[in-house]
Computed example of a mutant assay.
Amino acid sequence: MRLELRHLHTVCQIAEAGSLGGAARLLGVSQPALSAQLRRIEGVTGGDLFVRGRHGVEPTALGHFVLAKARRVLHEMDALGAEARAIAGHSPLRLGCIMLVLLDGLLARTDLDLYGREITVDLEDSVTALVRMLGAGRYDVIVYGEVNEHEVPLPSGVSGRTLVPREPFCIRMSDRHPLAGQAGVDLADLADDPWMTLVEDDDGGPEALVEACEKAGFTPLLRYRITDRMMQYDLIAAGRAVSLCQPTAPAVPGTVMRPLVGEPVVGRIRLAWNRAAVSGLQAELFYRAAAGAYVANVDNNPFHRAWWDAHPEVHPVFG
């Protein structure tokens, strides 16, 4: 692992909040997830950045050093983006996105020209970083997901809209898996399988998976965390892991997708945009394009088409 801007932002939020619990609320993550992320950051910096005191956490000497550098870097990056936009004048609409399966269809739709405005796209693996960069003016629009009850707080000057309020996550497994022939899979029957964990570590997904498995009577063996989708698919096809995935995900040779009985993990897809950079009309056009891209993927899996048709209350609403 190497330090990224989102890690610097996390360190600054912990220092400003004065406690892991307070920082977790500001960042929209659970305290255990934040503690785990801090340990990974400290593994890179080479030592403890905070110590627990009577009134929360306090920076160590190393922590003060890292904080000073982090604040300077974040300030310079925010200033760079704003100043560059001002100099460039009319510039492309900048889309930031978590690696959602609707992205390919979204970009392919002709109504994304937004009256001649070009689109640039960056992929992120952190919802926290995505939202922070939207608030700082480095993105104009973002597409992201939230899992179960997790909600990502949006900064001032930003509007958000839910595209799909609920979709049940399903399971991807090898087509040679003993359960591959079943119409639906009970999570408890996967207790002995190694898992490919979700790439995003701050959208509520990892916590939702662990919580659902514990309710099913086991603790999941989280063996792999890989960002390369093709490598993920190869490992699953080889029978070395199973993974949660969105129900609109495409078919992959050597794997099958099956719904989970009882819908133990559900997600939702949201859009957010910077009102200073995106007009109401442009936001509506973008919403329609994203909705069309999602609906076009519903038929990727027959079980999701059946579920979708039975739940009209989750269909996109056009205003």
Rank of each mutant, 00 (worst) to 15 (best):
D192F: 08
D104V: 09
Q282D: 15
V143M: 15
Y233M: 12
N301T: 04
V121G: 02
V164C: 03
D299M: 05
D78T: 14
L49V: 10
F303P: 01
P316K: 08
L38N: 09
V185E: 05
F218Y: 15
V147K: 03
V278T: 11
Y139A: 06
E4D: 09
L67Q: 10
L95P: 06
R305I: 05
L271Q: 05
L281P: 03
G56C: 11
R275H: 12
E211K: 13
R258H: 08
T10F: 02
R288N: 04
V278F: 12
A23Q: 01
M1W: 02
V295H: 03
V158F: 08
D193N: 13
E146R: 08
V147Y: 07
R39E: 11
G254L: 08
R54F: 10
W195K: 12
Q246C: 09
M133H: 12
L130V: 11
G56L: 11
R40F: 02
V252S: 04
A251N: 06
Q31W: 03
V256R: 00
L112C: 13
L38M: 14
L38I: 11
E16I: 05
F318T: 01
V199K: 10
V266W: 02
F169I: 01
G292C: 09
H177P: 01
R225I: 07
A79V: 13
P59G: 10
S35N: 11
G280Q: 15
V266Q: 03
Y233Q: 12
R225L: 14
L95V: 15
S159C: 14
G116W: 05
L271K: 00
I14C: 04
G181D: 01
G184K: 09
C170D: 05
A212G: 02
L38V: 12
V278K: 11
A36R: 14
P194L: 11
